[in-house]
Each structure stands twice: as C-alpha cells, then as structure tokens.
Simulated scan of single mutants.
Amino acid sequence: MSHSFSSYLTTSPVRWSRLKGAVVALAAASVLSGCGAVNNMIYKTTGDVMQGFSRDHTVPYLMASNDLAMGCSMSEATAPLLMSFGRVTTEPDQLAVMLYLSAGGCAEEQAREFELDALAAMNAMNANAAEDAMIRQKRAYVLASERYFKGWQHHEAHYGEAGTGECPDFSNDLDEFMYLAGLLSGLQALNAQIQSTSSIGVPANIGSVVARASGCLENDKWWGAPMALRATVWAMIPGAEPEGEDAFERLNMADEQGEAAGVRLPHVFHAIAASNKGDQALLKDVIREHAESLEQTPANPDWRFVDAMATNMIVALSDRLWVEHTGHRTPLGQLGTFWDDPREEVETMNLDDLL
C-alpha cells in the first residue's frame, strides 16, 4: 500500500526524528567543511606572511645584531613553528637554511663546551670525567651534523643541486647571502659528522661540491669568504688543490678582505685549515691577527652577527689551546695572547735611593 511522503512522516514520529537528525548532521558537516576550507586559507595566508616577514625583516635584523645567544635561542624556538607552515603552503626552504645553520651552531657550541670539559678533566688527571665529557661531545656533534645537513638539504631544494656548474639567478643580496649560508651549512655538516665519529649520511664529497658552488658568489662582495671556503677545502682534502694554486696564500688574501670589510669570517676558515694541518704556530698567528683586527676595524653594521660568529669560533679555538696547556680558558680580555708568550720586562725603580 503506497503512502505520500507527508503521511509517512505523520504516521512515523520515530522516522521523523531520525530524518531531522540526518538533516542536522548534513548541515553541520557542510558548515564544518566550509570552516575547514576557511581555516586552510587563513593558515596559508598566515604562513606566507610569516615566511615573507622572517625573510625580509627578521633575518636582516638578526644579522645586524651581535647577540649570538639570542640568535641561537630564536632559531631553536621558532624553527618548528615556521617550518610547520610547510604543511599548509609552500615549504619554507630558503628560510630553513638560516634556521638550521643557526640551530646547528647551537649544538656545536655545546659540543665545544663538552670538549673543553674533557680537556680540563684530562689536565686534572680525571679519566672518568674526561671520558664522560667526550661522550657528550660526540652526541652534541651528531645533533649539530643532523641540523646542518637539514639546512643543506633545504638549500638544495630551494637553489637546486649545487656544484653542477649552473648558478642560480639571485634576486637580491639577501638571496646571495642565504646561498652562502647554505654552503656553510653543508661544510659544517661534514665537519660535525667527522667530529662525532659517527655517520648520519652526510656525503663524503660534500666539501668538493661546496667548493665548486662557492664560485657562484662574488669574492670581493662577500668579504673574501667564498675564496676562503674553497681554499679551506683544498687544504683539507688531499689532491683537491688545483695546479698552480696555494691554499694558504689564498687564505692570507681572504683574511685581508675580511678584515677590511669588518666581517672576519675568512679568519675562521684559515684557523680551521691550520688546525687540520696540525700547525699550532700558524693557528696562533691567525688568532693574534683576528684579535688585532678587532681593535683596529669595527664590525660591519649590516653583518655584526656574522662577525660575532667568527669571533666566537676564534675564541673557541683559542680556548682549546689554553685548556690543553694550562687547564683553563683564554683569560678575559687576553684573546691573541698565549701562555708561552715571552714576558715583557718591567722596569723597576730602586726605592732604597729615595730613603
């Protein structure tokens, strides 16, 4: 027996209740799906704005600062937030280069502190404390290498495969600096992996790739750092130095450019090459040169952060030498001096003649 739709509803209150529930559910689903689309649009817009603001304003502001600890805290705290916007908009690959380079530096700073603890413990003949500190040092280097390598991977994702002979079309100076930062991140990833005595998958040829890719940057414009980077790779990798080139001669030239520009990053490369060579006398000379330059030339106001970073690493190398030989770090205000420097004779007056 057939019934009309209205009579069906009238004669079946239970069915009417169920139908109302279905209508409400459909309406709610429609509203919620609309809210989801609106939310996604808001998230995408927010992500785009945050990426653009961080790239155009936060990074330049940070580069003009010399507070390394603040920069370290910022990168570790904000990296998860800023990188999460890659879930709703384009992946922030370029910004990630700076975030992971800085965060890797935080972990490497911890590793250097643990190394000093180990050296001090060995100086005090405390074998257990020394071994424990060395274990912590290697763990910190693993973390540093992982972070640096993430920065390198994002660099490759944004700029394309490095070292292929094709250079990216840079849009402005900040774009070029980000490219340089990515090269530093790649080289540091390999160095930290070696220091950790572990393997996290950083390619062994990354140094050569970085050296080739550095040719995409103007040496004069970037404080001699691109040439210093190449020369360091030449000095560290057997057979990498081109015929007719002298890595340490190039490093000397880069030092002068960095000093004149007030961005002494080449000193770091020179010191690393000297340390890797086992030439302590040369390492001391580079540290002395850096200390003298700090007194003579102020930091470039646009790149104070990079110059401060270079000084921080030079101080770390100086501290290592001091702790190895004396058990304590470089005395405050005495960067560029060493425990075995000849003592200046102080002229004294014989007070007996005045009595």
Rank of each mutant, 00 (worst) to 15 (best):
L99I: 02
D56K: 12
T326Y: 04
N191V: 03
V142I: 13
A308K: 11
S33D: 00
T326H: 07
A129V: 02
L9K: 07
H155R: 07
A157V: 02
T78H: 00
N312G: 10
N276E: 14
N350C: 02
S185Q: 03
K284T: 03
P342I: 06
L174I: 01
Q193P: 03
W223R: 06
Y43D: 10
T10R: 13
W16N: 07
L282S: 07
P203A: 09
R55W: 05
Y61E: 05
G224I: 10
R264T: 03
C72M: 04
Y179S: 01
A316V: 10
K138N: 11
S30K: 03
A29E: 04
K277R: 15
V306F: 13
V97H: 05
A231K: 11
G34T: 12
Q280H: 05
L81T: 06
T326L: 08
D353W: 09
T348I: 09
G151K: 09
E241D: 06
A281K: 13
G47P: 12
A28Q: 02
H270C: 01
G207D: 14
S199T: 13
W322F: 11
A189V: 11
E249F: 11
L217S: 06
E115D: 12
W322T: 09
V59C: 05
T326P: 03
A121F: 03
R320M: 07
N312H: 12
I194E: 12
D173T: 13
Y8R: 09
N40W: 08
S208K: 11
G239I: 14
M349T: 13
R304Y: 02
N128F: 09
A225N: 08
L294S: 15
L354C: 01
D132F: 03
A247Y: 08
R15S: 09
L32E: 05
G201M: 07
N126Y: 01
G160T: 15
L81K: 00
T232V: 03
